Simulated scan of single mutants.
Amino acid sequence: MTPITEVEGRRLSLSNLDKVLYPATGTTKGEVLHYYAATASGVLLPQLRDRPVSFLRYPDGPDGQLFFTKNPPPGTPSWVHRTPVPHRESEPSEQVVVQDLASLMWAANLVVEFHTPQWRAETPAVADRLVFDLDPGAPATVVECCRVALWLRERLADDGLDAYGKTSGSKGLHLLVPITPTDSAAVSAYAKGLAVRAERELADLVVHRMRRALRPGKVFVDFSQNAAAKTTATPYTLRARAEPSVSAPVTWTEIEQCRSPGELVFLAGDMAGRLDRHGDLLAPLNEPGRGRPIPDTA
C-alpha cells in the first residue's frame, strides 16, 4: 500500500520508501525524501523558487535508467506551479516551478536531480547570476579545480563581482556570481572572455574548449551554462552518483586548503552538520541588491 502523507495541506502519495537507491551506502528512497524534507528544504527552496526546473530522473538509482526532462512529468498535480517559457526548437513551452515544500516533496518522490537556469521565470533569458562549471579531466581532480576557482575569484573581484563556490556533486566545482539582471547572451560573452583569459594565463592547467581530446590533466572552464537554454545542478540537490552526493556549498577556506579530492565530497548525511556550522553559504545569491553589473564586453 502506498503511504499517503499531507504536506502543507496537499496530499501526496510517497512510493517505495524502502527501495535502495544508492547500493554503495544502502541509502533508501525514504532517506532521500527525509534529506529533502528535513535537511535541505529550507535552503534548497530559495534556490528553486521562481526558476523553471529541469529534472534528471533516476527512479531505479544511479545504476538504472537516467533520463532528462523539462516537460512537466505525466501525472503532475494541478496545484504544482507551471510557467510558460520561450518556445525553442525541441524544447517545451511550459515547465514546472517548485515554489513550496509540497511541490518539492512531490518532485523528490520522482527521484530527481534538480537543474535550474541562471534566470527567473518572470524574466526569461535575463540572468541574475553567472556560473562557471569547473570540470577536471583525469588525472586532474577537484584539487586543480580549486586552483582555477581561486584565480577566477580574483579576476571577478577585479570587476567588482563576488563569487560563491559549491561542489558539483560529481567531480568538479561550480562558481556562482550574483549579478544585476543582464541579457544571457551578454553574460555568456563575459564568461567566455574570462575562460579564454584563464586558458591563456594558466595554459598548463586550463582549457576553455569542450573537445575531450584537449582535457586530460586540465580543468575545463565551462562558461556555456550561462546560455539561456542551459541549466546547472541546483545547490543542495542530490546527484545520481554511486553515493548520495550533494551539490554542496563550500567556503573559500575549504577551497584554498583542499589538497585531496575526498575533502570536497559531501553526502546527504553530512549536510545537517554543515548547515549547523556554516548556515546557508549561498543565501547572498538571493539577497536583494547583492548583484553587481558585469563589465561591458561590447
Rank of each mutant, 00 (worst) to 15 (best):
T2W: 10
P3T: 15
E6R: 10
V7L: 10
G9W: 06
L12P: 01
L14V: 14
N16C: 09
L17N: 06
D18K: 06
K19C: 05
K19H: 06
V20A: 00
L21S: 04
A24C: 09
A24T: 14
K29N: 05
G30I: 03
V32P: 06
V32T: 12
V32H: 11
A37V: 10
A38F: 13
A40G: 06
S41A: 15
V43D: 02
L44M: 15
P46R: 14
L48D: 00
D50K: 09
P52K: 07
V53Q: 12
F55G: 14
R57D: 11
P59Q: 05
G61L: 14
Q65T: 11
L66R: 08
F67H: 14
F68D: 05
P72L: 02
P74G: 10
G75S: 11
T76V: 07
S78A: 09
W79S: 03
W79Y: 04
V80E: 09
V85G: 06
P86S: 13
E91N: 08
P92Q: 12
E94Q: 13
Q95C: 01
V96C: 03
V97C: 14
V98A: 02
S103L: 04
M105H: 03
W106S: 04
W106R: 15
V112A: 07
T116I: 08
A121C: 05
E122R: 10
T123R: 13
D128H: 13
D128M: 11
V131F: 01
D133N: 01
D135P: 09
T141W: 04
V142D: 01
V143N: 07
C146N: 13
R147C: 01
L150F: 04
L152R: 01
L152T: 08
R155H: 15
L156M: 05
L161R: 05
A163R: 02
A163W: 00
T167L: 04
S168K: 06
S170T: 01
K171H: 13
G172H: 03
L173W: 10
L176W: 03
V177C: 02
V177P: 03
P178H: 12
I179T: 01
P181S: 11
D183I: 02
D183G: 10
S188A: 07
Y190C: 02
G193A: 06
A195Q: 04
R197K: 05
A198P: 04
E199W: 06
R200F: 09
L202R: 08
L202E: 04
A203Y: 10
L205Y: 14
V206R: 00
V206F: 02
V206Y: 03
V207M: 04
R212F: 08
P216D: 13
P216G: 12
G217W: 01
G217V: 12
K218C: 14
F220I: 06
F220P: 00
V221T: 07
A228L: 11
K230T: 06
T231A: 03
A233M: 10
P235S: 07
Y236I: 12
T237A: 13
R239T: 15
R241M: 12
P244I: 15
S245K: 15
P249L: 13
V250E: 09
T251E: 04
T253R: 10
E256W: 08
Q257Y: 03
G262V: 02
E263P: 01
V265W: 08
M271F: 02
D276A: 10
R277L: 12
L282D: 00
P288Q: 00
P288T: 03
G289S: 05
G289A: 03
G291V: 00
P293N: 07
T297L: 08
T297Q: 10
